[in-house]
Design a protein around this nucleic acid. Sequence first.
DNA 1: TGCGCACCGATTGTTGACAATCCTGGCCGC
DNA 2: GCGGCCAGGATTGTCAACAATCGGTGCGCA
Lengths: 213, 213
Amino acid sequence: MSDQTIATDKLRIAILGGEYLPGERLVEAQLCERLGVSRFNVRAAIQELAADGLVKVERNKGAHVRKVSIDEAVEITEVRMVLEGLVAARAAAKVTDAQASELDEIGLLMRRAVSAGEFRRYSDLNSRLHSLIRGIAGHSTADGIIETLRGQLVRHQFMLSLHPGRPAISLPQHERIIEAIRERDPKAAEDAMRAHIASVIEALRDMDAGETR
Amino acid sequence: MSDQTIATDKLRIAILGGEYLPGERLVEAQLCERLGVSRFNVRAAIQELAADGLVKVERNKGAHVRKVSIDEAVEITEVRMVLEGLVAARAAAKVTDAQASELDEIGLLMRRAVSAGEFRRYSDLNSRLHSLIRGIAGHSTADGIIETLRGQLVRHQFMLSLHPGRPAISLPQHERIIEAIRERDPKAAEDAMRAHIASVIEALRDMDAGETR
DNA sequence: TGCGCACCGATTGTTGACAATCCTGGCCGC
DNA sequence: GCGGCCAGGATTGTCAACAATCGGTGCGCA
């Protein structure tokens, strides 16, 4: 594995992990030490993450961790809404029996996690569910874009997942998605997924209103 | 304007213009001459276009013009379908009176172009219409992705636009989109846009069946 | 005191040379 | 004759030094 890959992965993880805050400047020389690679590789890593929308580079001014406003977060989530809707519809059209029971399994675990009040676990299951649906759909174009967008939202998503009361709202939505896919009803699956993510958007907006008050 | 920007733009135009065919290898040294810039800038340009999905780089093997299969073209267009649907809905929610008449104007010109058999002109108007709708919506996230995807499809889109009989099919679809936006009906606008692009997907598939026969 | 300007350290941009890797074509042994 | 193997050239990957640019700081002048 090349230094470049190492540097890119390390830097991506550091940013996603919150070790660099949004807006924070990324000085190449510092990153060389931090990542243990040459400046050449640091620059390559920055370029790659810029393509992913995680950092923003300004000519002659270096790179910053990209700061996504609430408005942008909403836009990004809107895009995710329609894309995951597409993916859900396609998953409903292609799902196998084995995959269907896998979905059910996750649904069951989610119910348990909510009633046990295990937020963190529920959040993990949430990721697993969405990821499994994307796997079933096998839509690599949509998949790639969704993954990129998810990266840009980690911070907001994270705050949202800790919001008390969210699981109670999203659990039935998830159940409806699972049901629609299991019944191989693409339209219902798309609608359910969009309704779910629309409610995420609402929560994002509310959260913002709460913070800026 | 920096050499890097110049190189990227020139190379992008050359690829989109078909001067480099899909699958063709891009040798850095050759591009230096062709573009009149240093290898450093050539590499930067290649990186940027790789992020746009126009070229694909393989480590130690250089860059090729990305070849998009019919299946990928369909996937990409599916994504465009839901994204442009989102954008159309938002445009319907935000359109001003002035913009509404601009839409109407394009609709009129389209009808004229079709009845006069001016395919090329119709194709241009098509771009203008979609572009205007995106402008009205002002959804920069969706906009950027759509633009990127369009780039990956130029070849297929181009072949499609020359397909005889396409304008007759797509004109009423465009009219319905315009009408829905003018009536400020987001859902109708989204549906109309999706129906339109769904028909493009069908045409793509047919075209493929025709070619590979 | 307040404003503008020139300098300087810090940081990024660029270059040319060199190292690593891959692909081709010809040679050797079987 | 054929398969594998080993140069050698072509191409890409990497580096360290150098150039250009930015931002701040302190000086001079009104």
